[in-house]
């Protein structure tokens, strides 16, 4: 007679570490096995890259923004707003008009993603579960800084994929439930660096335009409504300048995904409300 395997009783509070030991096959490309290579395609490229090969690849990976997408976050009086466009591209074609790039990471944190869709979606799914798993095992959630560091560690383990051009970059925004005032925003790079940003941040190919726009539109002590309006304006600017970013499509009722994290937690802004704000914008 057997019961649950021994790995189920090993110490630790990380779901990813547990998966590595118990079911590495389930842990797909998003997070490579520790010390090993990601199990994704191209056997030629799967050998460990030499230092000479890494340097240019790393420069390319860190300097080229992920193709497509604008996801931005900005802090306001009582929390933080995160917004992302809905376009997914495949070369010069549009793969989807209504993909979602902003998700709840947990009750008080939002995560947005830019980059290769498959990897990005898996990264989000695994990260959501990692936070939930920690909370259940420990009986209390991670601190916000702890959440950002955990995400950075996950990115570090997918560095090799990023070197092959398969990068996904997240943006994290949230607040500590106990703390008052504006939310906090963390941006990341492919090497697993986590950088806390003041007031606003953006990732994706349209990030440059969105940041320029936010710089002028944001009001750090403004209301949620003003912040949402600034976010929509910035996304509209990005969509005008960047082919990888989709604009709002009122004819099809497709609006950006906009989420707010305040003292009540994560909430997605309904399309109806966005439609009204868009009316005032144009």
């Amino acid at each position: 007679m057997t019961g649950l395997p021994r790995e189920f009783f090993a110490p630790g509070n990380s779901f990813i570490d547990f998966l590595r030991a118990q079911a590495p096959d389930v842990l797909a490309a998003a997070v490579a096995p520790a010390g090993g290579q990601a199990t994704l395609a191209a056997p030629a490229a799967a050998s460990a890259p030499t230092a000479a090969a890494v340097a240019p690849a790393l420069t390319a990976a860190t300097q080229t923004p992920p193709t497509g997408t604008t996801v931005l976050a900005l802090a306001y009086r009582d929390g933080v707003i995160m917004a992302g466009d809905r376009r997914a591209t495949q070369g010069h074609q549009i793969a989807s008009r209504e993909i979602e790039k902003v998700f709840p990471a947990d009750r008080f944190t939002a995560i947005g993603i830019a980059g290769v869709a498959g990897i990005a979606v898996q990264l989000v799914r695994l990260y959501q579960l990692e936070l939930e798993h920690y909370e259940k095992v420990e009986g209390a959630p991670l601190s916000l800084t702890g959440k950002a560091n955990r995400l950075a560690t996950m990115l570090r383990s997918q560095l090799e994929l990023a070197l092959r051009g398969l990068a996904a970059l997240p943006l994290l925004a949230g607040r500590d439930p106990a703390a008052d005032g504006p939310g906090r925003i963390f941006a990341f790079d492919v090497t697993g660096g986590a950088y806390e940003e003041r007031e606003f941040a953006a990732v994706g190919s349209g990030a440059l335009f969105a940041k320029g726009s936010l710089k002028k539109l944001r009001k750090p002590q403004g209301t949620a409504r003003a912040a949402i309006r600034a976010a929509l304006g910035a996304l509209a600017d990005a969509a005008e300048e960047d082919t990888g970013t989709g604009g709002a499509d009122p004819a099809r009722s497709i609006y950006p995904v906009v989420a707010r994290v305040d003292q009540r937690g994560y909430a997605r802004i309904p399309d109806g409300e966005l439609a009204k704000l868009y009316g005032g914008l144009t």
């Binding site: 009783f9 779901f15 118990q22 389930v26 579960l129 259940k136």
Partner: peptide, 17 residues
Amino acid sequence: EALRVAGIRYADLRGYS
């Protein structure tokens, strides 16, 4: 406590797979 943590792992693994 060991059973509890194993149960959470069992559930999370199943839900993820």
